[in-house]
């Protein structure tokens, strides 16, 4: 199915995709969109929204809108990089566990279950706590926390796909185990993985924001939505725009990924899809 066919078929998928495209464009063209330097403390602190400062200024006199625009970079960067790394770790683990089964599967599945028994947030806080607060460590933590989620989806899919006649048929034609697994089992395990990856991107945005909120991710003065949220919390009565703006952006970003993920889930008919 073509992307635009999918957008016509599912309005929510379309809305999610449009929001994501908007945020992505914002991140790419931040230099052109942001009216001011996001770091420079050039203005009076806590100015309310006005034509000059659409979303006001923060307690250090920085333009909130400019920080918001640049903040999208961190958010998307962390989400995409850490979920990609999670896939690089999780997909092979899930494939091996599901395909080879037996003792290998027992051990890997135990480790997956063990890690999944911690909520993602707790696990990432734990890991960044151990590694020290920084953007890189936040990404490492998110990757590690999400890898077992990816692995579990892949494993479950592989377990059912490997019993399919066409997989047995390929082996009956003389294909080896590794070839069968990568060439035939994996592509047929893609649909739920794609959904999981999209939903994970949403969760990663949320987790990164939480880490930044706790000061465990990108360090000031780097503009990040979580950090902005944390600052805004302190001035919630005197400068409510400081909290509202990043709050809405985080919500929109998470919503976008969830809408896309749910849309994909409804749209990917495993019989008719061509990946």
């Amino acid at each position: 199915m073509k992307i635009w066919e999918m957008m016509i078929e599912s309005k929510l998928f379309a809305i999610g995709l449009l929001i994501l495209i908007a945020i992505t464009l914002m991140a790419i063209f931040a230099d052109y969109i942001a009216p001011y330097d996001p770091i420079a403390q050039d203005f009076k602190p806590k100015l309310p929204p006005s034509p000059k400062h659409w979303l006001g200024t923060d307690e250090l006199g920085r333009d909130v809108f400019s920080r918001l625009v640049y903040g999208s970079r961190i958010t998307l960067y962390v989400a995409f990089v850490s979920v990609s790394i999670a896939c690089l770790l999780g997909i092979p683990i899930g494939l091996i566990a599901g395909y080879y089964g037996g003792k290998v599967d027992k051990v890997l599945n135990f480790l997956i279950d063990l890690m999944l028994s911690f909520p993602a947030i707790i696990l990432t806080i734990l890991i960044t706590g151990m590694l020290g607060p920084s953007l890189t460590n936040a990404m490492i933590a998110i990757s590690i926390a999400f890898a077992p989620r990816i692995a579990r989806i892949v494993r479950g899919q592989v377990l059912s796909v490997k019993e399919e006649d066409y997989v047995v048929a390929v082996k009956a034609m003389g294909a080896g185990g590794f070839y069968t697994m990568t060439k035939h089992v994996f592509p047929n395990s893609m649909a739920p993985l794609l959904v999981q990856v999209t939903l994970s991107l949403g969760t990663a945005v949320l987790v990164e924001s939480a880490l930044a909120f706790l000061g465990l991710s990108a360090q000031p003065p780097t503009p990040s939505w979580g950090d902005m949220l944390n600052r805004g919390r302190r001035y919630i009565y005197s400068a409510p725009w400081m909290l509202t703006a990043p709050g809405i952006m985080i919500t929109l970003a998470v919503l976008a990924f969830n809408l896309i993920g749910d849309g994909l889930r409804d749209l990917l008919d495993p019989r008719l899809r061509r990946l």
Binding site: E164, D165, Y166, A169, A172, G174, N188, R271, R273, L275
Partner: peptide
Amino acid sequence: MRHIRGKEISLIFQDPQNSLNPV
């Protein structure tokens, strides 16, 4: 055994609906 399968002895399955890979 891999050289036997498909090359010297091949197998046709019961349900053709599912014996070809859909992708």
